[in-house]
């Protein structure tokens, strides 16, 4: 019985279709202005790829910010539980999950059965989230991929001493004006977001295998810096972006089993 998990984030939307634990399709599209449209589009693409019709899907769970307004979901589960579940299914040694999301960053602690036992999320302000990276990238007039590419080229790190996004943005602007090389500023920004995340991770405590999920996990420079700062190796799954949707799909299978009892 095929089921689906849909993760509708502020930046991208993912769909995973699953049958008996096997992934039939995994799709990533950008969310754009309308999350409903993006969800429909991603679902359509996933169905095409798996050769299924909408009616074949027995259970659908939506997660992420758009979950509340997801058009076709049978159930809504937060990305905290889904990322935890998804990460644990990929590696049962995972006890800590880090996800730097667009609006929210989170550190999730799992027990030996993969159940969430504690989590922390960023405080109200955007410092330490994907949004922070975006604002900084904008100030530097480059995209996130370019940031990742530039960072290793830096010989030194400029310290971004401001803690809040608003202060930090003007600090970056003045660093540019003072003629600091862009790669050094990029490295400074990355250090700043990494240290933020580490401070959050320390609040719940890091244990067991640490997996990083979400789009930011594709940014090698950030993962590397995070590893160095935490002093432990970070596992990054092949497709970190779909972990949330995968978790949702796995929960859908469980939900289906329960329903059919």
């Amino acid at each position: 019985m095929p089921v689906a998990g849909v993760d509708i984030g502020s930046l991208s939307t993912e769909v995973v279709i699953l049958e008996k634990g096997k992934i039939l399709a995994g799709i990533i599209v950008s969310t754009g202005a309308n999350s409903k449209v993006a969800a429909e589009k991603a679902m359509q693409m996933a169905l095409e790829k798996s050769g299924l019709a909408r009616d074949n899907l027995q259970y659908i769970i939506a997660t992420g910010y758009g979950r509340v307004s997801a058009p076709f979901a049978h159930e809504k589960v937060t990305e905290i539980t889904c990322h935890g579940r998804g990460a644990f299914s990929l590696d049962s040694g995972v006890r800590t999950v880090i996800d730097i999301g667009g609006q929210d960053s989170k550190v999730i602690r799992l027990n030996s059965r993969g159940k969430v036992v504690d989590f922390v999320m960023n405080e109200k302000c955007a410092a330490g989230t994907g949004r922070f990276l975006e604002v900084m990238a904008h100030a530097l007039e480059m995209d996130l991929a370019e940031m990742s590419r530039l960072a290793p080229l830096a010989r030194k790190t400029v310290t971004i001493s401001s803690m809040c996004t608003v202060f930090a943005e003007s600090e970056v602007v003045s660093l540019i004006a003072e003629g600091y090389p862009r790669e050094e500023i990029v490295k400074g920004i990355i250090t700043s977001i990494v240290e933020r995340t580490v401070s959050m991770a320390n609040r719940v405590g890091v244990e067991g295998t640490l997996m990083m999920t979400g789009g930011v996990a594709k940014n090698a420079a950030i993962v590397k810096a995070l590893q160095e700062s935490l002093g432990i190796k970070i596992t990054v799954p092949q497709e970190p972006q779909v972990v949330g949707a995968l978790g949702a799909a796995l929960l859908a299978e469980e939900g289906l089993e329960k329903k059919e009892g």
Binding site: T159, I160, S161, M163, S199, A201, N202
Partner: peptide, 18 residues
């Protein structure tokens, strides 16, 4: 320590002074 205090931030709330 001047500048960022990421380590301390896991102990003190971010609305306390720098």
């Amino acid at each position: 320590k001047e500048g960022t205090s990421y380590y301390a931030d896991s102990f003190l709330h971010s609305s306390l002074c720098f």
